[in-house]
Design a protein around this nucleic acid. Structure first.
Lengths: 184, 184, 184, 184
DNA sequence: TATGAATGAGACTTCATTCAT
DNA sequence: GATGAATGAAGTCTCATTCAT
């Protein structure tokens, strides 16, 4: 499972073999087929977990008190929360950047992005009721994509200090950007 | 060539077949092998062209007059320029998002990103000599990644109006962000 | 394995297909690839065994007592021994005549011939210490090549009686030839 | 033509390409197909010439006066004649050792060997009318094969001196052998 | 007549999947 | 349930042969 995720991350879907997954997991290929009907199912399972995890994470970070805390605080919390999720889960790190690549999974990935964007747009509507829907959507898109990009970039960044700096700058950039739209 | 790029873009490297490339190009597999020695060479050729094009584009957009124009103007010029490059080249659109995925090409892609970041950092050094190198580097990273992300996102966005809006917002976000670092 | 040897013998390396080897062996092509990484490895394995077998055979036939027995006896023993080796091993028969044909194997085959010639020349040195090295070498070359040729010829000869006659004549010819050089 | 022969000799039939033949001959592949309908025809043509040449050579060397000269003289003449034929014709050298390898050509080669053996056996009948046919045949086989082997061996021998020595020894061996059968 | 790009059959090889042990 | 040898579909690549120029 983790073995598979690492393999997909390292070699991509096409160059990952079931034999390789089994070997890395320390079992036999026959055993892999006792848990998964086929190779795509392995990927789907991992992809599904990552997406689920991300959705859960968002839901818990942007919970019931979302409108009670200052938006800048919420922004910081979300960025830090997703970063922690990434750092804490090898599978998450391993799969994320491959997700958008493979047919049906790409769609699932984009569907999730759309969900996150929509949820974020709803927040903007709550904060600034006068803001038109298309505007909310565009701003939310900017925010979500920016955060996602930073997570991808720091996943590749071996220097911890630079990764931290990029996170700080991401917050700074988004704060300045949103300050022009959001009150307080 | 374009057929190959489209195929790589649509299915990824692993799921693109030489037979498929030939069929899409309206020729036979044998003919494809008269131009390219193997499948990787096809990808390499396309990837190489895209990278070259991007470098050329940057060089022409951020030319000799870079320090004579206001930085906001330059930013707008670069974003619009790269967008035009993307829009004008089906191959560019097709390949870009796959570039980072395949072994040596991933490195070439990241090397180019590092180049663009370094070149941008140099500009910051010219505009604000007092800015420390690590700071310049981080800011440049933010800018380059943000622009790249937006190009990727609008490539997937079928609605022209929304794409325009995203470009506008990207400029707006980066202007606000940079305004806190750059004079004028 | 034997199937492969027969196929190589019948059609040559280039016209032997892995599919054909598998079919003749009564298995699938996939199974052949579980034992050998590629077509050359199949040939190399067979060639290697034949060469090993021949070296072993020579060593056991021309053993410690080589100088205790009359040279004519030794000659007869070697010829009969190699003939038995040939007759007993279908693979040996199948491969021998192809051995000298394929790149690296050709070298291995010639290297073995040189070995046999050198070992034989040493015997002449023991029998006739006064014989010059080049002379010993030339005579040994004649003997080894003559025996090898006869083995090849009788491998193609379907008539057992004629094959026997050829072996008898080979011994006779070599005895007469060597009698002019060797004592006793 | 010579180009093809060299290529067949160097790489074997399977690894010789029509493209390669054309390139070595300094023309285009299209031109090769103006002279030969297909690859096998190229080989067949060369093989045919070699066989024809060998037959002619034998006929001229063992001509009308065959029974007037001493057999030892005739033997020397044949060996020297064939050696000259070999040395003088690059194609001959190039093709000879490949001849026996390829299906129909192998048969043609063996047919020629049988012819030479039969013709030689006839000579023995003339020299020793009392000799039984099977005996004549076996002796002729020994002689023809021995000469053929020596020609093959010296074709691979880069040292001219050693090649000469091998020819001398071949004559010596055959003379001693035949002396036990033939008068005078 | 000469050329060499185009063609596609066929060879090698990989690997997802099955199944007997 | 675990194993890994067996299978063969499918993909990459080569090259004999054709044919338009």
């Amino acid at each position: 499972m983790l073995a598979a995720a690492e393999s997909f991350a390292q070699f991509g879907f096409g160059d990952t073999t079931m034999e390789g997954i089994a070997a890395r997991a320390g079992t036999s290929i026959g055993s892999v087929y006792q848990f998964f009907p086929n190779k795509h199912a392995v990927f789907r399972e991992i992809a599904g977990r990552c997406l689920l995890e991300a959705r859960r994470s968002y839901a818990s970070l942007v919970g019931a008190d979302a409108l009670q805390v200052p938006w800048a605080t919420l922004l910081g919390r979300v960025i830090d929360g997703f970063r922690a999720l990434h750092d804490g889960s090898a599978m998450m790190q391993a799969m994320w950047r491959n997700l958008e690549l493979y047919g049906e999974y790409a769609e699932a990935d984009q569907a999730m992005m759309r969900e996150l964007i929509a949820a974020t747009a709803v927040l903007f509507g709550a904060w600034v009721p006068s803001m038109a829907e298309p505007t909310r959507r565009v701003i939310a898109t900017m925010v979500v994509n920016t955060v996602a990009t930073t997570l991808l970039v720091i996943a590749r960044e071996p220097d911890r200090g630079r990764a931290d700096a990029l996170v700080v700058e991401t917050k700074r950039m988004l704060e300045r950007y949103l300050a022009s739209y959001l009150p307080g």
